[in-house]
Simulated assay, not measured.
Amino acid sequence: MTVAIITGASSGIGQSIAIQVAARGAGVILTYQGNSAGAFDTVAAIEKEGGTAVALRLDVGGPLSGFIAFRDQVVAALRDTWQRDTFDHLVNNAGSAYMAMFPDTAEDEFDKLYRVHLKGPYFLTQTLLPLLADGGAIVNIASGAASFSGLEPGYSAYGSMKGGMVTLTRYLAKELSVRGIRVNSVSPGATRTRFGGDAFARFPEVIPGLAAKTALGRLGEPDDIGVAVAALLGDDGRWITAQDIEVSGGFNL
């Protein structure tokens, strides 16, 4: 059995990725920060279908010492649950939202985005790398906000961090290819999640406009992203590396 680590899997896209990966036969170590109930809902959904999952708390934007402690927990979970000392797949998904026009972007919010979306995944991956099996795969969740098709006012800071993740993906793909490890990024378009304080539920009036900008005529759903990530991690994605794949239904096409 393969084993995947998926960060930020207590709701939305991360939750869907965890469930979709488990449905393809992988064991799952999923992380959460504050939403423990959501994380254990994810575990329950996986176990209901006969899968195996473990939920661990992790603050991706926290101090790097927390990554060392997390690695020790991963070692214990691998040993106790799967009788292994390595894992096969890593999905850097955990994130936070922030929107502000460029002149109004606050330094503390900029720094938070940097810690959660770039610095954290960078050093978490570095910390876990000795446990990642040769021939494994990494998927970094980027964003359409980092590409020409997804440029929207108010996301200069968020999009810049996600652009950094796309660049990091290419460097990792180059450096880790000697171990047969594939590294890709997935850039979702507008997707119906609780991101931004459950923004779509609070402001449903924005949905028709986003759907109208999307070639396939609707808002994305978490499972649209989850199935794409699961395919990239599995054998279907065996000849794909160093790519950023936009999963947006053709936003601004």
Rank of each mutant, 00 (worst) to 15 (best):
S160T: 14
P130S: 11
T86A: 02
N140M: 09
A228P: 02
E175Q: 12
I225N: 00
Y155Q: 09
G220D: 05
T31W: 10
V186M: 06
A23I: 00
N140R: 13
P188S: 10
L168S: 04
R194N: 08
R194L: 05
V75I: 11
L124E: 07
D235C: 00
K119W: 09
G237T: 01
F110I: 14
R84Q: 10
A55F: 06
R179Y: 02
T81G: 05
I68F: 08
L168A: 10
V74F: 13
S147R: 10
N252S: 15
S156A: 11
V227T: 13
A199C: 06
S187P: 09
I225L: 07
I245P: 04
A69K: 10
A146M: 10
A173K: 03
T7P: 02
V183N: 03
K162D: 07
V186T: 07
A190V: 08
P121F: 08
V91K: 01
L132A: 00
E47Q: 15
S11E: 07
I225R: 02
R238F: 02
R202F: 03
A37F: 06
P130M: 13
R170F: 09
D224E: 11
A18R: 03
A9C: 03
S187N: 15
S177K: 04
F70P: 12
S248R: 01
S36Q: 14
H89G: 01
A26E: 12
I245E: 11
A76L: 07
A45N: 08
A133F: 03
F102H: 04
S143C: 11
G159H: 05
P222C: 12
A199F: 15
T169K: 02
M165L: 15
S156M: 05
S156P: 04
S248W: 00
F123T: 09
T241K: 06
E152H: 09
A146H: 09
G164S: 14
V247R: 06
P188M: 11
K119F: 11
V166L: 08
V183A: 05
D223Y: 12
G135H: 06
G120F: 02
P121E: 07
E109S: 10
F200W: 15
L216E: 15
V183L: 09
T169Y: 02
S96W: 10
D235N: 03
T42Y: 06
Y171N: 10
L216A: 15
R218H: 12
L253Y: 13
A190Y: 05
G196P: 13
L90T: 00
S187W: 14
V54W: 11
D88I: 01
A142S: 13
E109C: 04
F67I: 06
F110T: 13
D236P: 00
F148M: 12
F251T: 09
W239F: 08
T125Y: 11
D244T: 12
S149N: 10
R182G: 01
G234E: 00
A23V: 00
G217W: 13
R84W: 04
